[in-house]
Write a protein that binds this DNA or RNA. Structure first.
Lengths: 219, 219
DNA sequence: ATACTTTTGTTGCTTTTGCAACATGTATTT
DNA sequence: AAATACATGTTGCAAAAGCAACAAAAGTAT
């Protein structure tokens, strides 16, 4: 129903006929945007992948979200007054559409420009996907311990790829920031899972974004 | 921008002219709905408040969400294959609109019925509010310890009411389920916060949904 | 008023997680 | 090839959180 195919290439060939929408490219590792209150920015990730990163007032890092093709992000979707610094960092080379979200009729052109017509049509699907992603994230964060967070996340990746073998979209260091746990405690738990035969790890050479292959055995 | 007032009474006087939409009343404590895969149900809470509750395979309870007026919920917004039981329970007497979400043009009437016209128009605002709520929830769940979860949540309630004095929408037992922590550990932390002067607690007699008033002193 | 249920409040003990430090291994840069 | 930076892997110890059990208070039903 909420089929990726429906929107997979929708905004891809977008040409900035509307003055209110801009398309930018970002190279791996660069800063895509920061969340600044009251600017109402919204973005669509056209290609590549990125992390939504938070630093709290103590400097603690958390990877709040893992952004992929067709995901929407931006400060307009995020609560204000959190006293945190949030920014989006490219994990791979990325293409991004960005614009100011006021409402769905913020195009001044008559008739509406191509982008705003398409956006208005696809907005429900984009939002529904985003909502399911956020609820999936909440499912993960509400697991009671590190082991269940790991297995829960591996289960998501496994289901998504329809295979018990898959690659992590994070380094292990970043996985700990994503699961919101201490890295060394997570490594300890990974060792236990390996000993008990729940996972196998294989290191892959020269892969820029992924560093492990997990062969997960779920019950 | 995403103003509650805009939609505050929009669906309130809805009359079921469309055969695909139904309005139901639920008394306090009753079951509003369960999340069953592939039914694509979506609901709007017209009045009252409710909890979205999850029981995992081990019987662990978590309050996934706290639903209030104009909030949307339903299995169509939630990931499938979680091996969990999810249901929505009325905290107060509730009125709920429910329908099947296929897409935004699932009304067979020509011209579209009043509900679907209004829903289509208000859908973006409903979804944006929902997204901000979910991101607020993620902010809370990614706090590193019980103390910060408590203070973070009190800060949200305080900001929402524009007052340092506010009531909890949960019993303390349910607050622990909501913050996803052990109740006794949470009580211990609440005692510390009280000793250190961060909060004051006052019990209120005969209040059905709230049991405490907290006078929170933030730095 | 009494019995019963639910919620609050507390504590000792155990388990889990976090912290700090460091060794090793793998990429990247010069 | 050497130097540097970053990621993985491991450990001892400390701190935090979970578990179990129970008492007291408040709310509800009879």
């Amino acid at each position: 129903m909420l089929n990726d195919v429906e929107i997979s290439n929708f905004f891809e060939n977008f040409n900035s006929s509307c003055s209110k929408v801009s398309k930018h490219s970002f190279s791996k590792g660069s800063l895509i945007t920061t969340y600044i209150e009251k600017r109402n920015q919204m973005c669509i990730l056209l290609s590549g992948s990125a992390n939504l990163i938070r630093y709290d007032f103590n400097g603690n890092k958390t990877i709040i979200g893992d952004l992929n093709k067709n995901d929407i992000f931006g400060e307009v979707l995020y609560p204000t007054n959190t006293n945190n610094e949030l920014f989006v960092e490219a994990k791979e080379d990325c293409e991004v559409l960005s614009f100011i979200y006021d409402n769905l009729v913020n195009c001044r052109d008559i008739p509406k420009c191509k982008f705003h017509r398409e956006f208005e049509e696809k907005f429900p699907i984009l939002m529904m996907n985003n909502t399911i992603n956020l609820n999936t994230r909440i499912e993960l964060l509400t697991k009671k311990n590190i082991r269940d967070k790991l297995l829960g996340y591996f289960n998501i990746l496994s289901t998504r790829k329809l295979s018990k073998t898959f690659m992590l979209p994070f380094t292990l260091t970043d996985l700990a920031y994503y699961l919101n746990v201490d890295r060394s405690a997570m490594m300890r738990e990974l060792s236990h899972l390996k000993e008990e035969g729940f996972i196998q790890k294989k290191r892959k050479k020269n892969n820029p974004t992924c560093c492990l292959i997990c062969r997960v055995i779920f019950n």
